[in-house]
Design a protein around this nucleic acid. Structure first.
Length: 836
RNA sequence: GCCGAAGUGGCGGAACUGGCAGACGCGCGCGACUCAAAAUCGCGUUCCUUCGGGAGUGUGGGUUCGAUUCCCACCUUCGGCACCA
């Protein structure tokens, strides 16, 4: 180091100029200084301003895991650049920060390291705030919200009660993974291995039914399939659509011989006459009653086995079909035939009604089951092109639609109307009806955990389930909890916490000790940001009216089927309860990809491939890290971190710095017309390009076109144009265009130019299409589609002239080999293709 | 198995509605500066070539004067769902 860090501007030879000492670009000095200034000036604080168009720009809030990795920067800083761009375009842009602060990792940390979850969480938030500040993003910290704050979860509880009062929250028995040794429920990630054993004691887990709280999201299934007003990525819409899993068909009621109804759902009511047996899920409530004494033992054994398998494992396709006969029979309502009832784990209690009619001739799963257990296969449909069908000799099921056969009164019904006609038939006779079924389940929100918002419910022996009155919210989490090595929820064992007076009768009662799923907290945080200190409701309606809905929401696709469905559901519920307006909370959604470790693997501490943003910022500066994250990847794709490519943007920033600072005092000159035009043109082309690309989340070309512009300005400097008016305009435009991407260096250069503070309050440069126009173009001349010559011509050349110019080319003539052109295609402003 | 995304130089990536493939960078090579190195600057950098040119955007076909771009079939990688009745 030493003198190489400095350089001195010496203007043209000899003249003893005023010597200006140029400081090296020192991000370590510049960046914290501006961050402090912006914060002190509350530059990014947003308030309602009816005179300006609002823009609510939201990026998914981080979980309070401790420190942020480079992936958070990748998610947040390009979004910030776009928010800044919109701000310069004159929008009143709100870009709020916050933290998703409840959840299991805090509790695990507590158990492992004997530190209170609250302490762990809030000290993590401290660190993450520092890191987010170092991004130089336009966070409006006055709107920060933390989901674990009592004034936040008070309203999470309030929303729960709203759901409860409107029959959208209900309690039912539902299975959880249970460790019989630890005597506790386990979260999915605490269950390990093929044999599904407990993380802690290795005991195989079992399913256990517990009373749990659900939200009736299925009531909104149909509406959630409607994306018409949303500008969301197609893949996300498809993911949600598949997750909701709408299927049309019919419900029909069979009866056991004892007279108990068994409801089934089928997508193929037209095959009802082909049903030769029924299959119930092992957990189906009727199994016990149906099972005959001689079968009881094998049925019991099978149910026990099935209970040990997870749904996922049960659904592995390649497994051979298993099942046992219950000994019981049911009556097919369309033909009063007696069919045997089996149980098998290929029927899931969690889908449809947990019972199916089996039509082996037309359903492959039923077919395999029938062959395995030697059950009758009876065709009921004749697909097109099939002459006749024999159940005995079929080798696979035929799922195609076709004419109904062996189907009593409906025999002969063509495939096109078979489903419709059958549904009408079922309805007429009162044995069934057309129906729609969804894969989506109601949302289970109970967590047998401490670090979450307590569910505001009291159980009273005389009054039953009693909601905590609104004026008693929040139900506070107690701090003085005792940690037990079993991992069971401390709330249950707190000496006093759960014992309360019943809000209704005053008798002694018990609190619900489960807490809420954290997805509940994150379903409405965009509303809390509106007015985080507001205490008359979850948000201030005045703020809501101005800011909502969210205009742009950015985050990872991994939230497509959980958070993004829940938050839409939440919004629709609030709308129906007149809490909010509008049908959707977030109008535009864009997903960024993921930054992987340098080894191409997902970053994780155990792999040792984590890139720490703090290290990168220290080494290269925030602006360089921001610019590199935008430049090096397609934002929607992501990719491995590359430790070398970042040098490119570091050098670029240094070049720009030297360019700008080094030409501040340049003497005014008259630029020569050719360079003047070239510079002007590039300036305006860049304005167009950068605006378009920021608008469209194409951040990599934002940076590359800025690099191009700086290259052209440097060339102009070399040509002696520094100091000319056009040169200075180009410099100014470049700095303004850089401001969203590299806010600190832009601000610093802006100030050094003597421009008014702050660059982030300046208007975005205007684009002039006349000045961006090319006067000359390179006309590409092809012969038979192959490029043979390039000729520089005036941009406004007409077709005839272009054709003549092309044909006049010697090279072209040579390649035409003396033949006459058969056809000449002229693409105005681009090329001429001569076909011979 | 089904659904989705992506395959372009040594690497990251660019290419508007079908019209110069490889912008902008990284890396590498050569040169300048230096006692030397780093930094910086300049030139070069898809492959083959008999220097005329030829080939080339995962593979094979097709449409077109012309295809990275549109159509069909397939291969690979990544992500989601997974016996959904």
């Amino acid at each position: 180091m030493g003198e190489c860090d400095m350089s001195e501007v010496s203007e043209t030879s000899g003249e003893p100029m005023e010597q200006r000492r140029i400081d090296r670009y020192d991000h370590g000095e510049i960046e914290p200084r501006w961050q402090a200034r912006w914060e002190a000036d509350e530059l990014y604080k947003t308030t309602i301003d009816p005179d300006r168009k609002k823009y609510y720009f939201l990026t998914m809030l981080p979980y309070t895991s401790g420190d942020m990795h480079i992936g958070h920067w990748y998610a947040m800083t390009p979004s910030d650049a776009r928010a800044r761009y919109l701000r310069m375009r004159g929008y009143n842009v709100m870009f709020p920060p916050g933290f998703d602060a409840f959840g299991l990792p805090a509790e695990n940390a507590a158990i492992e390291r004997n530190i209170h979850p609250k302490e762990w969480t809030y000290s993590n938030i401290e660190n993450q705030r520092r890191q987010m500040r170092s991004m130089g993003a336009m966070w409006d910290w006055s709107r920060e919200a933390i989901s674990a704050d009592p004034e936040y979860y008070r309203w999470s509880q309030w929303f729960f009660l709203q759901m409860y009062h409107n029959d959208l929250a209900y309690r039912k028995m539902s299975p959880v993974d249970w460790c019989p040794n630890c005597n506790t429920t386990l979260a999915r990630e605490q269950v390990w291995g093929e044999d599904r054993h407990c993380e802690r004691c290795k005991t195989p887990v079992i399913k256990k039914d517990l009373e749990q709280w659900f939200f009736r999201i299925t009531k909104y299934a149909e509406e959630l399939l409607d994306f018409t007003i949303l500008d969301w990525p197609e893949p996300v819409r498809i993911l949600q659509t598949n997750w909701i899993g709408r299927s049309e068909g019919a419900r029909a009621v069979f009866h056991t011989e004892g007279g108990d109804p068994i409801e089934i759902f089928t997508t193929r009511p037209d095959t009802l006459w082909g049903a030769t047996f029924m299959v119930l899920a092992p957990e189906h409530p009727l199994v016990k009653k149906l099972t005959t004494a001689d079968r009881a033992e094998s049925v019991q054994e099978y149910i026990h086995q099935a209970a040990r398998r997870s749904d996922i494992e049960r659904e592995t396709v390649d497994r051979e079909k298993t099942g046992v006969f219950t000994g019981g029979y049911a009556i097919n309502p369309v033909n009063n035939e007696r069919v045997p009832v089996w149980i098998a784990d290929y029927v899931l209690m969690t889908y449809g009604t947990g019972a199916i009619m089996a039509v082996p001739a037309h359903d492959q799963r039923d077919f395999e089951f029938a062959r395995m257990f030697d059950l009758e296969v009876r065709p009921a449909i004749l697909p097109p092109g099939v002459e006749s069908l024999d159940g005995e000799t079929m080798t696979e099921a035929l799922p195609e639609y076709g004419m109904m056969i062996n189907s009593g009164p409906l025999t002969g019904t063509p495939g096109e109307t078979a489903v419709e006609q059958t549904n009408a038939y079922l309805e007429e006779r009162g044995i069934g009806e057309g129906a729609v079924n969804y894969r989506l389940h109601d949302w289970l929100i109970s967590r047998q955990r401490y670090w979450g918002a307590p569910i505001p419910i009291v159980y009273c022996t005389s009054c039953g389930i009693v909601p905590v009155p609104d004026d008693q919210l929040p139900v506070l989490l107690p701090d003085d909890v005792e940690w037990r090595p079993t991992g069971e929820s401390p709330l249950k064992f707190h000496p006093t916490w759960k014992h309360v007076e019943c809000p209704q009768c005053g008798e002694s009662a018990e609190r619900e000790t489960d807490t809420m799923d954290t997805f509940m907290c994150s379903s409405w945080y965009h509303l809390r940001y509106l007015s985080p200190g507001y205490d008359e409701g979850p948000f201030d309606p005045k703020e809501y009216d101005y800011w909502m809905p969210v205009d742009t929401y950015t985050g990872g696709v991994e939230h497509a089927t959980m958070h993004l469905i829940y938050t839409r559901f939440f919004h629709k519920v609030c709308r129906d309860l007149n809490i909010t307006e509008g049908h959707e909370p977030m109008l535009q959604l864009r997903n960024q990809g993921q930054i992987l470790g340098p080894d191409g693997q997902r970053m994780s501490k155990s792999r040792g491939n984590v890139i720490e943003p703090d290290d990168q910022v220290r080494a290269y500066g925030t602006d360089a890290v921001r610019a590199y994250l935008m430049f090096g990847y397609r934002w929607s794709e992501g990719g491995p971190w590359n430790a070398e490519n970042i040098h490119g943007v570091v050098r670029w920033l240094n070049r720009v710095w030297n360019l700008v600072i080094g030409t501040i005092d340049a003497n005014p000159v008259d630029g020569d017309p050719i360079h003047t035009r070239a510079l002007q043109r590039k300036q305006h082309q860049t304005i167009r390009q950068v605006s378009h690309d920021l608008e469209n989340f194409e951040f990599n070309t934002v940076v590359s076109s800025l690099m191009e512009l700086s290259n052209v300005i440097i060339a102009a400097r070399e040509a002696g144009m520094a100091g000319s008016q056009v040169f200075n305009e180009a410099i100014e435009a470049m700095i303004l265009l850089m401001a969203p991407v590299t806010p600190h260096i832009a601000e610093e250069m802006w100030e050094q130019l003597g421009k008014p503070y702050s660059i982030h309050n300046q208007a975005w440069p205007e684009f002039d299409s006349e000045l961006a126009k090319e006067e000359e173009i390179t006309l590409v001349v092809q012969v038979n589609g192959k490029v043979r010559d390039r000729i520089v011509v005036p941009a406004d050349i007409d077709e005839e002239q272009a054709k003549a110019t092309a044909l006049a080319s010697e090279v072209v003539q040579r390649h035409m080999g003396g033949k006459e052109p058969r056809k000449v295609i002229v693409v105005p402003g681009r090329l001429v293709n001569i076909v011979v």
